[in-house]
């Protein structure tokens, strides 16, 4: 009963916020609803017993979306004066989103404490006592450690390649040199001049 209730809450909020992502006019709100949708999807994963996916979704997607949000704010030509005018107007909606997030987090944590393996589909838990974070860790870092390391080297090559093919030493770029800054003192950087009244230098 409680499970079903929680499921419907997450699912409805998820769908509703997904619809809002594409219908609201303000891109910033759109991103906020996207984050809400991700949180709800993460909640659904927890219900399925896939706690690792839920964590990754929150860490990676919400983390990445925060960056995306920054880009949206920086890149798009949003008239913030106009936006701020309606700040009070939007406060209820913003507060509502925040409140829903808070309630959801509490329910997730609460249900986790009340019933550690929640969810209706218990057939998924074939690993016995090992949680799926453990199982994935075992697979990636022990069983497939060779592949893990190989992927690491591939990423290293990609990085070296990107630098080799694009990095140039540009002339005339001003760089901060701490030593030079520390070596400055008033005697070699400040010049005192007597300025006679009524005249410039």
């Amino acid at each position: 009963m409680i499970d079903a209730l929680i499921f419907y809450m997450f699912a409805c909020t998820c769908v509703a916020s997904a619809v809002l992502v594409i219908t609201v006019r303000n891109p910033v709100h759109s991103v906020l609803f996207l984050i809400l949708a991700f949180f709800n999807a993460a909640g659904l994963f927890v219900l399925l017993g896939a706690e690792f996916l839920a964590m990754i979704l929150v860490v990676v997607y919400v983390g990445a979306v925060a960056v995306l949000f920054m880009f949206v704010v920086m890149m798009l030509d949003i008239n913030f004066v106009q936006l701020r005018q309606g700040f009070l107007e939007y406060l209820p909606i913003g507060g509502l989103v925040g409140l829903i997030l808070l309630v959801e987090l509490i329910t997730v944590l609460g249900s986790w404490v009340v019933k550690p393996i929640s969810g209706t589909n218990d057939t998924l838990h074939t690993m016995g006592s090992i949680s799926n974070t453990h199982a994935l860790g075992h697979l990636i870092y022990t069983h497939y450690v060779y592949l893990f390391q190989a992927s690491g080297i591939i990423l290293l090559v990609a990085m070296i390649g990107a630098i080799v093919l694009t990095h140039r030493n540009r002339e005339g770029v001003k760089r901060q040199t701490i030593n030079d800054q520390l070596r400055r003192n008033p005697s070699n950087s400040v010049e005192l001049r007597k300025v006679e009244p009524g005249k410039g230098i």
């Binding site: 592949l147 190989a150 992927s151 080297i153 591939i154 090559v157 990609a158 070296i160 390649g161 080799v164 093919l165 694009t166």
Partner: peptide, 18 residues
Amino acid sequence: LSLELWSLSLYIIAAIRR
């Protein structure tokens, strides 16, 4: 994975004289 490792390095080295 090893095929990719090898191919990626070869793509880079072919274009090294950018």
